[in-house]
Amino acid sequence: MLQPDTIQHSAHPVLSVTDLKTHFFTDAGVIKAVNGVTLSVNEGETLAIVGESGSGKSVTGLTVMRLLARTTAKVVGGSIHFHGRDNVSTDLLALSEKAMSRIRGHDIAMIFQDPMSSLNPVFTVGDQVGEPLRVHKGLNKREARLQAIELLRQVGISSPEKRVDAYPHELSGGMRQRVMIAVALACDPRLLIADEPTTALDVTIQAQIIDLLRKLQQERRMAMVFVTHDLKLVKQIADRVAVMYASQVVEEGPVDEVLANPRHPYTRALLDCIPSRRDGSGNRRSLQPIPGTMPNPLSPPAGCRFHARCSYALPACIVSEPELQATDGKHVTRCIRWQEIAP
């Protein structure tokens, strides 16, 4: 079990998730999509959640937003605390749906990977950017439109006075993602959850969007959770990183520290998979795939979930699930042999 005080939260993290468990009850069985996730993010800070497909990144974000269908998804354990501007800490899981809908899109906003499916094709860009302002801030149509134009300008859309009346299909993928950011930022949220917001975009547009997010986040002192499968992006956007594997956070800490000095074999192995022809000293480096495959989410292995693929595994690793341990004040890992893992 996780000791809440292993992770040194600063005075009041904007978000703190503790030992969260979100399970899907399906015909095929129970999928423990999120199974003991602990993380936190402070004001003005970006936490990246990185992990391979199916590791539980999106389900973590959607659970915080309370956007999962109650019919199959159940939060079976843990807590999610949100610390608002009013200096009050709220347990999001305890809120009524009505109370949650006042927070969602206002204090906490989310951006998704595919802007086309999250923008409504029959409403103009202005309607959609203005909507949270009408709903949460009580602006009238005209005021909301003026604010929407200003927001579109802030997210780098040229001639916003014209674009405000455009429909999503009239915009490029990069522009739609900017519109999504404008929608998310309309009410000046304290926390932004961005779930792979640039994965579908070209590199030059991706660089523009990352730059924009970083700038807006710093201006507004927003807390941001940035979900990605790309470790290379993590360095550019985040202050801290949480590495997920098979429904759990296996390592978390400051980005520079975790990437330069990983203390979990999975993080190390992921870094070795990143294509790069030359190492730091200019020599050719060969790719080192991780042996084996991801565990089946319906029947995860006992003990450490990474043991079957881990080059450090010992018999003890199969006996019980390792706990998150602090390697120093800010860096935690879920591996019993972390001290022996050479950087």
Binding site: S172, G174, M175, D202, V203, T204, I205, Q206, A207, Q208, D211, D230, K232, L233, K235, Q236, I274, S276
Partner: peptide, 22 residues
């Protein structure tokens, strides 16, 4: 040069981000 600088792994010092779209 712009493509290389936009790539997430870019390690160089100054990073110029290409504006506009295709």
């Amino acid at each position: 040069a712009a493509l290389l600088q936009a790539a997430p792994g870019y390690a160089g010092e100054s990073r110029q981000i290409l504006g506009g779209e295709i």
